[in-house]
Amino acid sequence: MDAVLGALGIYVVLLLVFRLTGKRTLAQVTTFDFVILLIVGEATQQALLGEDFSLVHAALVIVTLVLLQRASDFLAWRFKRFERVTDGVPSLLVSDGAVLKEALDLNRLDESDVMEAARAKQGLERLDQVKWAVLEASGDITIVPVQNAAPQA
């Protein structure tokens, strides 16, 4: 398979795999996840390059992948629906101090994950100090502490 079509195929496969496995795949990388990612990289390299290790082939694969990513970014910026499909949407985990259990379960998270983010980013000690917690589309958990929350309208 030629370089451009091969890169396009791998891009679509990786997009599907990482999109379908959920937001937390890359944001919560354990040691084993890291090893798996290395193996994915190795398998991808084999599929992309095959037995052609020439400079032109490698350059074509790299430029194709980068252009696809930039095109995806542009489409996500231009079309909200495309962004939702490729990047996902944020999920509310703690709403006005109330823990949303269903949202946590849906995202395979628990209160300890929220508290971990609360400690790391805001230095909070208890869950009742969290007013809002959001699982962002990037997989990151952002925290708004009770004392920093904007006054309710």
Binding site: D2, A3, V4, L5, D52, S54, V56, H57, A59, L60, V63, T64, V66, L67, R70
Partner: peptide
């Protein structure tokens, strides 16, 4: 640069730089 890179990929897809369409 984006235009040049896009043309590079297009040339590759068409087979001007190696195996291609």
């Amino acid at each position: 640069g984006w235009i040049v890179l896009s043309l590079f990929v297009l040339a590759g897809a068409l087979g001007l730089l190696g195996p291609g369409l």
